[in-house]
Structures are given as C-alpha cells and as structure tokens.
Amino acid sequence: MTGQLVVQTILNSFMLSGLYILIASGLTLVLGVIHIINFAHGAFIMLGAYAIYFLSARWGVPYLFAFVISVFTLGALGMVVEKFLYHRFWGKVLPCLVVAVGLTQVIQQGALVAFGIESKYMDSIFRGTITFLGARFSVERLMVVVIASVLVLGLLIFLKTTKIGMAMRAAAQDTDAAILQGVSISKAAQLAMFIGCGMAAAAGMIIAPIFRADAYMGELLLTKAFMIIIIGGMGSLPGAIMGGLLVGFIDSVGQTLIGYPSQILLFILVIVVLLVKPTGLFSGIVFTIEA
C-alpha cells in the first residue's frame, strides 16, 4: 500500500464513519430511552433524502432551510409514530418489531407509489474537491463529516448539560427510578423519537446529493447501524460513536484491501462481540425478548 493509498483510504473512511455515527446515534438513543428497536429508522433516512430532493432540487428551496425544515418535520413524524404506534409496546421487542417492520413496508411502498420507481439524483450542494497529501476527497463528502460531527456533538452536549437531556439519560439508565424522581417517561420517549428520527432524516439529506434517493436506500444503512450498536453497546451513545468509527474504518480499509468480501469481517466482529461481551464494547443494555 502506497502512502497516497493509505491517506485516500483513511479519508474515505471518515465519510463512512461520520454517516454511520449519525445514523447509529439516533437508533441507539431511541433504543436506550424507549427500549424499542426502531426498525423504521432506515425509512426515515429515505424520507430525509426524498425531502431534500423535492424541496431543494425540484422546488428550489435553499438547502439549509430545506434541511432544517425537514429535520423538524420528520422528527415530529417520529413523535407521532411513537405516540400512536410504539407507545403501547414499550420494552416489548417482538410486537414492536412487527409494528416497525410493517411501518417500514408502508413507508417504502408509499414512497414508490408517491415518488416513482426511478432513483432520484440531484446536483452536488457542496461542489469541488480537496487534495490532502496527494489524496483527493470531494467537499460534499467532507461536509458529511462536518454535519455529522456538529449534530452528534450537539446531542452529547444536550444530553450532558440540559435538564431534559439528563432526564432522558435517567430514563435510559433506570426507568423506575427516573419515574420516582419525577421524570416524564412519555415526554422523554417523544423527545428521543424526535431526535432519533430527525438525525436519520439528516443522514438521508446529506447523502442524497452524493449518491441518490430511492425507496430502499435505508436498508443497508440500517443494517450497518445495527452492527454498530451491537458492537458499541445497545443504548450507548459513546458506543455508537466508537462503533461507527470502527465500522467505517473496517469498511473502507477492508474494501480497499480485499474488496467486497471484507463485509464478512464486520459480521465476524459482531459475532465475536456477542460471544465475548454481549453488552457491547461500551456496556449497553442486554435485552430479553418479551412477546
């Protein structure tokens, strides 16, 4: 491996890691607070991508404005989903799985009907490329790293410093104790879904100009996010960050060194973590299946 190839590979891994962290953070937050695996998380990524395509590329709404509007709207949709669908299944893995998978199907098929079967492509928002130690990287990929960092850092600060953030952490750590301390679990759950779905939508919005928007685009990303939270620890935000960095790096280095078969490495890692430390590398929650 030449020096330039090493730099290029590391640069490539930054975008993947940023994207994965953004998606996994939202997923793990919902999991931590509501104890529900939001299988519809991928569908929100897709809705974000379509939102930015229609608002920005088709109707000419400025990208930043469209971004903010979409994050809030889709975050609010997440709250609606929590209130009317997930609320009654808190902590029940199997019923919630069925509901979430069904919801995903409805959203995906709805997108096919509403937006058509062809993938949607839009022009780059952040044009140009940068050269670093001989390696090249597009500015729009760099912006994935920047936007993901800002959002995840913002979430960390919010959870650490605000009263409602601390209430959410308390709810995630011990629901009963949090209730006794006067924390409204319903509000914490609503907020977790708002943030989680908003972050998923943000992920869709930053990758749509780089790749495309299509009805199934969230599936592979959701699989990666699951791997990340298993590796990092379910419900653990630091786990999602470290897991995202690790998976992004393995994806990029593995694919550059050995090509597509490198995907097996990730599955091996997940199996090893489950066998050796089922709570994940950063001590998340161990779930029991309650039908």
């Binding site: 190839l5 290029q8 590979t9 490539n12 993947l16 780089i210 790749f211 495309r212 685009m217 994806d251 990029s252 694919q255 550059t256 090509g259």
Partner: peptide
Amino acid sequence: TDYYPFLT
C-alpha cells in the same frame, strides 16, 4: 453507491 474503495 459508494465506489471510492473499489476505484481507489
């Protein structure tokens, strides 16, 4: 959709 590793 991301061909960077292959193309690299």
